[in-house]
Simulated assay, not measured.
Amino acid sequence: MIRHSFILLDGIGEKRERRLWKEGILTWDDFFQCKEILDIDRERKKIYDEFLHKALEALIKRNCYFFKKNLKRREHWRLFEEFLKEAVCIDIETNGLTHEKGGYVTLVGIYSIDGYQVLVRGENLTEENLQQIFDKYKYLITFYGSIFDIPFLKKEFPKLKIEHIPHFDLFFAGKRTGIQGGLKKLEAMFLIERSDFLRGLNGYDAVKLWRAYQKGSIDSLEVLIAYNRADTENLFQLARIFYEILRAQAGIDKFIDNGTLNTA
Rank of each mutant, 00 (worst) to 15 (best):
Y116H: 11
I12R: 10
N202C: 13
L191K: 13
L26N: 06
V223G: 04
G174K: 02
L160V: 05
S112L: 00
H99S: 11
Q249H: 10
Y227M: 02
I225M: 14
R18E: 07
R42W: 13
N129M: 09
N95E: 11
D91W: 05
D39M: 07
I241K: 04
I218M: 14
E75V: 00
L261Y: 11
L20E: 00
R74K: 15
K155Y: 12
K22H: 05
E50C: 14
A226T: 04
L38I: 00
T142K: 02
L119E: 09
K45F: 12
A58N: 11
G103C: 04
I37G: 07
G103P: 05
I60P: 08
L153W: 01
L160H: 01
D205H: 14
V223R: 10
I225E: 04
K101G: 04
L84T: 03
M189C: 08
Y144C: 08
Q117F: 15
W21L: 00
A212Q: 15
H76S: 02
L52H: 02
E244T: 05
L8I: 03
Q131D: 08
L191C: 08
L97A: 01
G13K: 06
K185R: 15
F134S: 01
L224E: 02
L170A: 03
E128Q: 06
E23I: 12
N129W: 03
K155T: 09
L9W: 01
D41I: 11
I133L: 04
I7A: 02
I225F: 09
R121S: 12
F236A: 13
L84A: 03
H53I: 14
A55H: 08
D257E: 15
R73A: 14
L198K: 03
I60G: 06
E233Q: 13
G251W: 05
R42C: 14
W210G: 06
E233V: 14
G115M: 00
I12A: 05
S217L: 11
K68E: 12
V120S: 13
Y137Q: 07
F236L: 15
T142R: 03
Y104M: 14
Q117C: 14
K254H: 15
G259F: 03
I241H: 06
L246Q: 09
G115Q: 09
E14A: 13
R16M: 10
L186I: 10
G115P: 05
A226L: 03
Y104K: 12
L238A: 05
F148R: 00
R62M: 06
R62L: 03
V108A: 15
L153F: 01
I47T: 13
W21E: 01
L160W: 09
T142H: 01
A212R: 15
L261V: 10
D30K: 09
